[in-house]
């Protein structure tokens, strides 16, 4: 495998890892605050459809992005209502939201565009175009660094850079701000936060809403940057891979970046199985590559290789003592 092929593989990895990273960070905020969210998939899917539909109708990808975030926030609101206000089962709520998104997107798409549950192809300003970073063209001829910069680092849509910038930001928010401390505390021991006079409900709602915004970005990226339009079930389990990455990362932002890049690499290799054969000389089944993130997560969860311990109050509705 030559250098350029490697760069192209890594480039694909970055493109495929971005939605996973955004969704993974979304889940990180929510689960750190003690709200399990298996509805990441559904929120991404709904956001993908609404961003594509609005981008197509208005011709502006930014309005599409807003619509995607908007619908994702609505679904987050339902999740918050069910799991915070009415103290329902968070897992069942997440599942219901994913199903709701799966059904509603096709229903609305069919009614709106009459193309069998998809949106028309997006073009021009209705898509996020790749950005060529400064000096990429001039530096291209420099050995090693030039192609690295041109092929791998430059030439992605803006959402990719936003996603990567969100990793240090999330770390800073969670571990260096008062809000972050409280957010983590509410996921570990909500009673202590309540005793300190801080509202558990408000903190958990804000975490769920941040999760909504990030899922909105992830969905919009899928439909308006990675691909040009919405197709039925286009998230294809990415929400669950993000969930797996979150566990793999043990609910920490930097680890989330590495985990999603690893899972992105698996997805990239799934598209180029010939590369693995070239490098290690053994034919690896594509199905195995597809299942690898899930298998690794089960192994990690079982504690065979470094135990993943979720936030202590995760999944438990908080009931104030009287």
């Amino acid at each position: 495998m030559d250098f350029l092929t490697l760069l192209q593989l890594l480039d694909t990895t970055v493109r495929l890892a971005t939605p996973l990273l955004l969704a993974c960070l979304a889940g990180l905020y929510s689960e750190r605050a003690g709200i399990f969210d298996i509805g990441l998939e559904g929120k991404m899917l709904a956001a993908a459809f609404f961003s594509a539909a609005f981008a197509y109708s208005t011709g502006s990808v930014w309005l599409g992005l807003l619509a995607g975030i908007g619908v994702s926030l609505v679904l987050s609101g339902i999740h918050g209502l069910a799991s915070i206000t009415f103290r329902g089962n968070q897992l069942i709520s997440g599942l219901a939201i994913t199903m709701l998104a799966g059904g509603m997107t096709v229903l609305i798409a069919q009614d709106w565009f009459k193309q069998g549950g998809r949106t028309p192809q997006l073009e021009g300003a209705a898509r996020f175009e790749p950005i060529t970073l400064p000096f990429a063209e001039t530096l291209r001829e420099v050995p090693f660094i030039g192609p690295l910069y041109y092929e791998l680092i430059s030439g992605h849509p803006i959402l990719v850079y936003i996603a990567f910038a969100l990793v240090p930001l999330t770390w800073w928010i969670l571990f260096r701000t008062r809000f972050g401390l409280r957010l983590r505390a509410v996921g570990e021991n909500p009673a202590s936060v309540d005793t300190a006079g801080v509202s558990v409900v408000a903190l958990r709602y804000s975490a769920v809403m941040i999760c909504g915004v990030l899922c909105g970005l992830a969905g919009a990226y899928l439909a308006t940057a990675l691909q040009a339009g919405f197709v039925k079930d286009m998230t294809a389990g990415r929400g669950y891979i993000a969930l797996a990455a979150l566990i793999f990362a043990k609910w920490r932002p930097w680890y989330a970046l590495w985990a999603t890049l690893l899972f992105g690499l698996f997805q990239a290799l799934e598209l180029r199985p010939d590369l693995i054969q070239q490098v290690i000389g053994v034919k690896v089944q594509v199905q195995l590559l597809g299942a690898l993130p899930y298998i690794l997560t089960v192994v990690i969860l079982a504690g065979f290789v470094g135990k993943a311990i979720p936030p202590r109050a995760g999944g438990e509705p908080y009931v104030k003592e009287r």
């Binding site: 209502l81 329902g88 968070q90 069942i92 219901a96 709701l100 059904g103 509603m104």
Partner: peptide, 18 residues
């Protein structure tokens, strides 16, 4: 897909928003 929506709503109301 209407059925998927109905099914999701049933799960939502009987399970999560009980």
């Amino acid at each position: 897909e209407l059925i998927v929506v109905i099914q999701a709503l049933v799960i939502l109301f009987t399970g999560a928003l009980d």
